[in-house]
Design a protein around this nucleic acid. Structure first.
Lengths: 161, 161
DNA sequence: CACCTGACTTTGCTTTCTCTAAGTCAGCCG
DNA sequence: CGGCTGACTTAGAGAAAGCAAAGTCAGGTG
């Protein structure tokens, strides 16, 4: 990260996309519920139990996730069972999977049990391990310190020079 | 995400790397402080002001981030100024940048101001826009729904069959 | 048609987070 | 050597998030 830092005082980050994303998924239980949804959990009780949160919290978070459009609630029926509702990831929710993968790989590296991580992610088509990586539009791999911050159209500047 | 779902009830996710990561950075202010650190902010007051949190909170979170090894606190001196401490990302902290990039790009897509995002990230070497993408060890690009979950060495199974 | 189960909701309480306002402390500046 | 500034800390209070325990409700089973 280089350059433009001198002007950062003149910027108001009221339109920061990270902050806006965190307004939606910025707490532990929400992200863990999305983890479960991405792993295929669909039923209310399973969400609560697997995430390790109480039912009232699970109900509130799931409701919010549906309201935000990350999960869709839809009826389903197992053979011989009555109809129920299940929660499934929408496309909008699925696009948070890279966040989950990046969180997982940081934990694998820096916070895993000595025995190793509990699970790992394989590419469905070829079986190789999957990682979140940074890549530029020109196709280069990018290091975390190889990023430049550039002002975008939604940037609000203060009236300071 | 396919397969192995039938057995998920038999797994205890006590060693989930996502949960462990969220134990460290699982709240809004911590992630926003890391955003600032990754953008080059170094001084206490700037962190508090740019993230939009109060000084007591900034002090507590920064202290924790140093304790967790994501930031390093070290003395520095600007010419004609007295010595001070600055906070800079460690390697451990920098490895969370993909998480921040992934959060940013989700916000750019789903929660940006109509005018567009406030900033965008360019590859320092070539200027092209940078994204977080999923890629497998064999070099394939992976879709969010092209992931398989596989049990790892640290997985704890219950004694249920 | 009484019962059971899955899926929540309600209640009451505790913990955590965050804020404002004020206080502290250490160095260079004059 | 007194004041100013940057960098925090302390104190007090309100809001938000979480938990446990109990209650509700609807549909399928017997």
């Amino acid at each position: 990260m280089t350059d433009l830092l001198a002007n950062r005082d003149a910027w108001l980050m009221t339109n920061c996309s990270i902050a806006r994303t965190l307004d939606v998924v910025g707490n532990r239980s929400t992200l863990l519920l999305l983890r479960e949804a991405s792993l295929g959990t669909r039923r209310f009780d399973d969400f609560a139990a697997r995430v390790g949160i109480s039912e009232p919290v699970a109900a509130a978070r799931l409701k919010q996730l549906v309201a935000d459009g990350l999960l869709e609630r839809r009826p389903y029926q197992e053979p011989g069972q009555r109809t129920r509702d299940e929660y499934v990831l929408t496309d909008k929710g699925a696009q948070l999977v890279p966040v989950l993968v990046a969180l997982r790989q940081w934990g694998d590296t820096w916070a895993a049990d000595p025995a190793g991580p509990a699970v790992w992610l394989a590419h469905h088509d070829c079986g190789a391990e999957v990682h979140a990586v940074l890549r530029c539009a020109a196709g280069h791999d990018v290091d975390p310190d190889g990023l430049d911050v550039r002002p975008g159209p939604g940037l609000i500047r203060t009236n300071a020079e």
